[in-house]
Design a protein around this nucleic acid. Structure first.
Lengths: 230, 230
DNA sequence: GAAGAAATATTTGTATACTTAGTAATTTCA
DNA sequence: TGAAATTACTAAGTATACAAATATTTCTTC
């Protein structure tokens, strides 16, 4: 064995080109960089990534399956554009799934996990005081993800995460206005209390309400600002 | 204009080659024709359908997204092979989703839809008497689908249908034994009663139990017959 | 004969080329 | 001038070709 024994090839990316493109496009869509309804030209995306159409097509197919774009045969792909009804349905289901998650998580979380959640809640308090919407949004996401993880059900974690991603493009109006930030924080506090009290049914009920409020906020906003419907 | 004016081109299929292959493979997998764990060779599938690898690859990507196959970069695709734990998690989530569906459906179904459900239930009774497992299974599926549709939430319908499809390859031991058929039938009857009584909470509770029993039946069977784990 | 290394074969990932369908533009005829 | 039809063009679907990585086999060495 020499000193120069074969090193790990520093595999630049354990990912395939197609999957990188998929992740990148997914980010663009969920962040709103590519607006709902936008037609996606395969050639254009290919050039942007310096690749051929093949991996782009595969990426688009995967995005279609996960619900971020729609593909019509011979007519290409476009970022999903949902009706208000449909978005309402998604929030409704999301509310139920989140309720399920918190109910199960309340029964299964470890002490450590509960305190991690509590810690996140404390952090978000600072963001409320600072009126830092972006940071609050990020911490909010972590808060929910931590609850998903608390179910210890990999399948449920995946399902909930996927749904959250699908709704993402339509949540951007969420925290418009500082008062909404505070309300969200207080709702979290109530949920957290139930979790620590190991009252799973109450936690679930509160979570369902919390999510339905978010849905209502969105749909009302979208209704009042139809031109900015994204 | 002559008599031979251009006829509708009898568009053989409004589908693309890739989507046909996808549907076909999905059937093969859910029906068990291709067993879990089977490695899928792109070239082989391409030849089977008389096509090139390109549409086959796209089909496999979509199947991966919907959870029927797993793809590892550079190592190809294989039919999902799940651990018992994972299957248990899926049944657990499925039970919750189905409970959600029946709760919402109980509140929203039209009179016509309720009677369609009742009709299906009557049909399944015949299959119980005939001990016709395959037919019962088909009617059972329709029964559940009718409940999904009763939610009038296209999003929820899609979600539930997708989950059902994902579990399909692992449900085949479901109705082994006539007594299980009868039990299933009677559980349906109780659910149906609650729906007609518009008691959505009870319907949900019964449905959850109904699905959890199915999951327990499977996992017990799989545990007792590990070699036939499919 | 077994273990490891080199060579070969197979298979996936990507690029390019070609075919076909859909759309837009232009032309022709009423 | 307006509508229908033809043509041209664009973009998606599919096939083929090539490159890169993994799997397999063979060969060498102990």
């Amino acid at each position: 064995m020499t000193v120069t024994e074969k090193m790990e090839p520093i595999r630049v990316a354990n990912e395939t080109l197609a999957s990188q493109i998929r992740n990148c496009l997914a980010d663009d869509i969920t962040s709103g960089a590519i607006a709902p309804g936008t037609q996606i030209d395969e050639q254009e995306v290919a050039e942007r990534f310096g690749a051929s159409r093949t991996p782009v097509r595969e990426a688009l197919r995967e995005l279609a399956s996960s619900g971020l774009v729609t593909i019509e045969p011979r007519r290409g792909a476009r970022v999903v554009e949902l009706t208000l009804d449909r978005i309402g349905e998604m929030f409704e289901v999301m509310a139920e799934i989140e309720a399920m998650c918190v109910r199960i998580a309340t029964e299964r979380m470890t002490t450590l996990e509960r305190y991690q959640l509590h810690h996140l809640h404390n952090i978000s308090h600072k963001h409320v005081l600072d009126e830092n919407i972006d940071e609050y949004d990020a911490t909010n996401k972590q808060f929910h993800t931590t609850i998903y993880n608390g179910t210890h059900s990999s399948f449920l974690i995946e399902l909930a995460s996927n749904l959250r991603q699908r709704i993402a493009p339509f949540r951007r109006a969420q925290f418009r206005g500082i008062q909404r930030l505070l309300i969200s924080y207080e709702e979290h506090a109530a949920i957290l209390n139930s979790i620590f009290a190991k009252d799973s049914d109450t936690a679930a009920k509160l979570m369902r309400a919390h999510m339905l409020v978010a849905g209502a906020v969105y749909t009302r906003y979208a209704y009042e600002h139809p031109s900015r419907l994204e």
